[in-house]
Lab assay of single mutants.
Amino acid sequence: TETRTFTDEREARRFEQEARDNGKDVQVRESNGKFEVRVK
């Protein structure tokens, strides 16, 4: 599991989409204006 934290939602979404395109299981959590993207 890899976790990346972004402050920019667009960057978080781009990373999320890229991971999904690669067939990964992705979860995005938002807290305090930060976006935590977990990739399995």
Rank of each mutant, 00 (worst) to 15 (best):
R10Q: 13
R20T: 05
E2G: 06
R13T: 05
V37D: 02
E2Q: 09
N32R: 05
E36D: 04
V26I: 04
E18F: 10
A12N: 01
V37G: 00
R38H: 14
G33P: 01
R20V: 07
Q17A: 09
N32K: 06
K40H: 13
G23C: 07
K34C: 12
R29F: 15
E18G: 05
R20F: 04
V37Y: 00
Q17R: 11
G23W: 04
A19W: 06
R13G: 04
K34N: 09
Q27D: 11
R14D: 08
S31Y: 15
N32E: 10
R10D: 12
E11P: 02
V28K: 02
D8N: 10
T3S: 08
R14S: 08
E30N: 07
T5M: 09
E16M: 13
A12K: 01
T3Q: 06
R4K: 10
R14M: 11
V39I: 11
E30D: 06
R4Q: 08
N32P: 04
A19Y: 04
K24D: 06
K40M: 13
F35S: 01
E30I: 13
K24G: 07
G33R: 02
V28A: 03
F15K: 02
K34Y: 13
R10Y: 11
T7F: 11
R4F: 15
G23P: 00
E18A: 10
A12Q: 01
F15M: 04
V28L: 11
E18C: 13
T5N: 06
D25V: 11
D21F: 09
F6W: 03
T1N: 10
T1K: 06
V39S: 04
E30Y: 15
T3N: 07
V39E: 04
F35Q: 01
T7P: 05
R4Y: 15
D8H: 05
E9P: 07
R10L: 13
T1P: 08
N32H: 08
R14Y: 07
G33M: 02
A12W: 03
V28M: 10
F6N: 00
T1W: 15
F15S: 02
S31Q: 11
T5V: 14
F35Y: 11
E9R: 05
S31E: 12
F6K: 00
E16G: 05
Q27T: 14
V39M: 05
N22A: 15
E9N: 03
K34E: 10
E30L: 11
D21M: 12
E16S: 08
A19T: 04
E16V: 13
D8W: 01
E11G: 03
F35L: 04
R10N: 12
R4S: 06
F35G: 01
A19F: 04
E18Q: 11
R4V: 11
V28G: 02
E18T: 09
G33Y: 01
E9W: 09
A12T: 01
E18S: 09
R29D: 07
F15Q: 02
V28S: 04
F6V: 01
A12E: 00
E18V: 08
E30Q: 11
R29Y: 15
K40F: 15
R4M: 10
T1F: 14
N22L: 14
K24H: 13
E36N: 03
N22D: 10
V39L: 06
G33E: 03
R10T: 13
Q17F: 05
Q17T: 07
G33V: 00
A12R: 01
E11F: 03
E2H: 11
T5P: 03
F35P: 00
R13K: 09
G23T: 01
V28E: 01
K34F: 13
V39W: 06
T1H: 11
F35W: 15
E11T: 06
E9Y: 09
T7R: 07
R38G: 06
K24A: 12
K40L: 14
Q27G: 04
T5G: 03
E2R: 06
R10E: 12
K34W: 11
E30A: 09
E9D: 03
R20P: 01
T5A: 07
T5E: 09
K24M: 14
V39A: 05
V37N: 01
Q27N: 10
D8F: 03
T3Y: 12
D25H: 11
E16Y: 08
Q17C: 10
D21P: 00
T5W: 15
D25C: 14
T7A: 10
V37K: 00
F6E: 02
F35E: 01
E11I: 03
V28T: 07
E2N: 08
V26M: 02
R13W: 06
E16Q: 06
T1E: 13
T3R: 06
D21V: 09
V28D: 01
T1L: 11
K34R: 12
Q17N: 08
K24E: 05
E18R: 07
T7V: 10
D25K: 07
V26F: 02
A12F: 04
E30R: 08
Q27P: 00
E2S: 08
R13I: 06
Q27W: 14
R29H: 12
K40Y: 14
R13Y: 07
Q17G: 05
D21N: 13
E30F: 15
E9Q: 07
R20N: 04
N22R: 13
A12H: 00
G23S: 03
N22V: 09
T3H: 09
T3W: 14
F15H: 04
V39Q: 03
R38E: 14
E30P: 06
N22M: 14
K24F: 15
R13Q: 07
D25E: 13
T5Y: 15
Q27I: 13
E36L: 09
G23L: 03
T7N: 10
E11H: 05
R29T: 14
A19L: 11
T7S: 11
R10K: 13
